[in-house]
């Protein structure tokens, strides 16, 4: 079964992770633009970050047979820095038209401040202009209230529900998102957010429709194999294959295909890896034997 991790920050992961992910069946990832732990203080840092998402990281993933897509946005945390907001929002149109960019995200709320609200609203308009779906982050603190506010915001802006993926859901927020008509993401984390056991229970209760799971792996304590691990747990607890495949492949493909930028026939084929051309030098291969698979 092919797996799609629809929320993972690969720039903070190693090539060992890429190898393990490919071995576990992950063939496509979506990397949303987010913060980097250390706050950025110059628009130029965003420019280089955005460029790396469509440049180096995309190439790095391809060397392991993994297709790398991304979502671009000014994230809610850094939307609170008045020295960045206008500049980063002005930069985004230059990146939203690019090939691997299949959504606007992560947008949404962190502390629900006026500046976050303004950036959220302006980026919904950008998504409309570039005909892209949106990936919406929900706050970790005061989660239920934050999610309600998020859904209200999307309604106020009349953003089409079927083009919204609301992420980091819990038992309390999932029914709200499904009821809104949007898609619901779940970040399976070692300690916080959501775990495998609870996720299987949610799937048994709600089924597969508009439900996605991801690792949200980043630079903190997280696990890039949470999608395959949750698949294994679903199997052990008797969830049928059709349901599993819908959650880990068909749903993310269908959601991001709304961008018009997923080549569905190409996605179904195994990716071509050719590391011969990367022998030593400055590629990710440093003297190992090259892998060739066509």
């Amino acid at each position: 079964m092919k797996l799609f991790d629809p929320h993972i920050h690969m720039t903070s992961r190693t090539t060992d992770d890429y190898q393990a992910m490919a071995a576990a069946g992950i063939v496509a990832v979506l990397e949303p633009a987010f913060w980097l732990g250390q706050p950025r203080t110059h628009v130029g840092s965003f420019e280089d970050y955005f460029a790396s998402l469509v440049g180096w990281e995309r190439f790095r993933a391809s060397q392991f047979g993994i297709r790398h897509f991304c979502a671009m946005a000014l994230n809610p945390k850094e939307a609170n820095d008045p020295n960045l907001v206008d500049w980063v929002l002005a930069l985004l149109p230059r990146y939203l038209g690019k090939d691997g960019v299949v959504a606007v995200g992560e947008i949404g709320f962190d502390e629900v401040t006026p500046s976050e609200e303004r950036c959220f609203a302006e980026q919904l308009e950008l998504a409309r202009r570039f005909e892209l779906p949106v990936l919406v982050h929900t706050p970790h603190r005061d989660k239920k209230r934050g999610t309600e506010r998020t859904l209200a915001m999307l309604r106020e802006h009349r953003f089409p529900e079927e083009r919204v993926l609301v992420d980091h859901n819990t038992e309390e927020t999932l029914p709200l998102v499904l009821e809104s008509g949007g898609w619901a993401g779940h970040s399976i984390y070692p300690r916080t957010k959501m775990d495998e056991e609870r996720m299987v229970t949610l799937v048994q209760r709600h089924g597969a429709e508009r439900i996605l799971i991801n690792s949200a792996a980043d630079w903190g304590v997280s696990d890039p194999l949470k999608v395959p691990k949750t698949v294994a747990r679903m199997r052990e607890r008797g969830v049928d294959e059709e349901t599993i495949e819908t959650i880990v492949w068909r749903n993310p493909v269908a959601f991001f295909a709304q961008s018009g930028r997923l080549d569905l026939t190409e996605l179904e084929k195994p990716a071509t890896i050719d590391q011969r051309e990367l022998w030593e030098g400055n590629s990710v291969l440093r003297g190992q034997t090259a892998v060739v698979r066509t």
């Binding site: 420019e47 955005f50 460029a51 469509v54 440049g55 995309r58 690019k98 691997g100």
Partner: peptide, 9 residues
Amino acid sequence: YRSGDNGER
């Protein structure tokens, strides 16, 4: 070039 992805570059 500077703001281009791999294909644009």
